[in-house]
Computed example of a mutant assay.
Amino acid sequence: MSGQTWDETGPRFRPPPGVTLFVPVVVAFLVQVPATIALSWWTRTPVPVAALSVALAAASALALLAARRWPGPTVAFVAALTAIDLFVPPEGGPPAVALAFAIIGAVVRGARLWALIAVGIGWLGAIVVAGLMDVSWHPFRIALATLGLAVCFAIGEGIRARLQGAAQRRAQLVERRRVTEQEERARIARELHDVLAHSLSQIAVQSGVGLHLFDREPERAREALSNIRTLSATGLDEVRGVLSFLRGDDGGAPVTAPLTPQPQLAELPALVSGRSGLGLVVELDDRLGADLPPSATQTAAYRVAQEALTNVVRHSAAARATVVVARDGDELVLTVTDDGAGIPSGASERGGLRGMRERTALLGGSLAIETSTHGTTVVARLPWEPAS
């Protein structure tokens, strides 16, 4: 079974179009025509009358060829032929298989009203004409024929309901797949934003500072270049790790680059150290110690801290920032504060801050951002044990 796939958006089985078109014609023809010929011969029916009876049986069967394109007119035509055949010898001919196929096909193809009207008029007309012509039918035969017609309608309704249910399930599966793919694209975009935007924004800031201080303060310019080198190497490693993670690479093959698709809280000191320098002091207050939440919560907290510190560097012109990680009951609380000029108006709708909100919401947490001209405070509350 390896290597095979199952497309659950398609029907489990669908016969070829030729089967659904020609099988009813062939079955109706083989049941009605030979039986009518044999019965005419057995009852010594006159040849002209027998020929008319055989022609009616053959015509009703062949009319099913038009059932796919014109299901309504087809069931009306077959019902009329069947009603006429009731009054043409020999009496008590073969079952009207063509009419059964026509009724079922019409109901399945959405021509239910055609079938109801045609069969109702044909059956009522046959009863009225039989009374006028003094033709007597056994009550059991009438009841059996009526029951047979009702069964045909029931079968058609059952098949139609089943097909509609299957189509609805396929549509639901397609929609579910579309939503899943959209969520996956959003997750990939979020991961790439986290590992690219932050590193690149830091590199841009550090390179600008290095160029500005290159002649006046070469030591600080050298520090900026060193930070650029570290940030670029770290960002490249993270990009490789994320791409490897998204491709589903496992440990079966050697990997030359470090895989870091899911950073943890243990990496916060390195993040804080990387954001410090060039006039900005970032401090970490870790109140968790060895008590750590599950991996998903750690990753979300790290990414929120990463985005918050990136905003401090890019927008706030702060001199000091603090990252506090603590536990409050069943929640992990991450707080990032700075003494800068605040987040620019409208920035809450941008990708980075929106990504922080999405990350906390996905785990069932909350994010609060308070900003003013005296600084910004970001508080992320994440469930210690995320719902599985």
Rank of each mutant, 00 (worst) to 15 (best):
G235S: 09
W384T: 04
E183W: 01
L334V: 15
E283V: 11
P46I: 13
N311K: 14
V179D: 04
A204I: 15
A143V: 12
P383M: 08
A301Q: 05
A167L: 12
V78M: 06
I188S: 05
D339V: 09
R222S: 14
V272F: 08
Q264D: 13
E217Q: 13
E238F: 11
I155K: 04
A224P: 03
L200V: 14
V313G: 02
S345Q: 15
G342R: 14
F153E: 08
D291N: 13
I142Q: 07
L213S: 04
V239S: 02
S53L: 06
D134N: 05
T377C: 08
V97T: 08
L353F: 14
E385C: 08
Q4V: 14
Q172V: 12
V179S: 05
S372G: 15
T43E: 10
V135M: 04
A387I: 12
L246C: 06
L231K: 06
E358C: 01
G340S: 08
V281E: 08
E217T: 12
A253D: 08
G165K: 06
M356C: 11
V195S: 02
A143T: 09
Q182W: 03
R303K: 07
V27A: 13
R359H: 07
A319F: 00
V313R: 15
E91F: 15
L149K: 08
Q206F: 11
L259G: 03
F77M: 07
L362H: 09
L81V: 06
F29Q: 03
A61P: 01
L21S: 12
R160F: 03
I369A: 12
A130Q: 02
A318F: 10
V135I: 07
E349Y: 08
R350F: 07
A111V: 12
V205L: 15
R112P: 00
A305N: 03
G329Y: 07
Q168P: 00
Q298D: 01
A368N: 14
G93E: 01
F77K: 03
I155R: 06
P344L: 12
L132K: 02
P139N: 07
A305S: 13
R112Y: 00
H193G: 08
I103F: 02
S345L: 15
L124K: 04
R303Q: 12
D250I: 14
I369Q: 11
T310W: 14
E191Y: 02
A166D: 05
G105C: 05
F153A: 10
S232N: 11
T20K: 10
P383Y: 06
T310Y: 14
L363Q: 02
C152F: 07
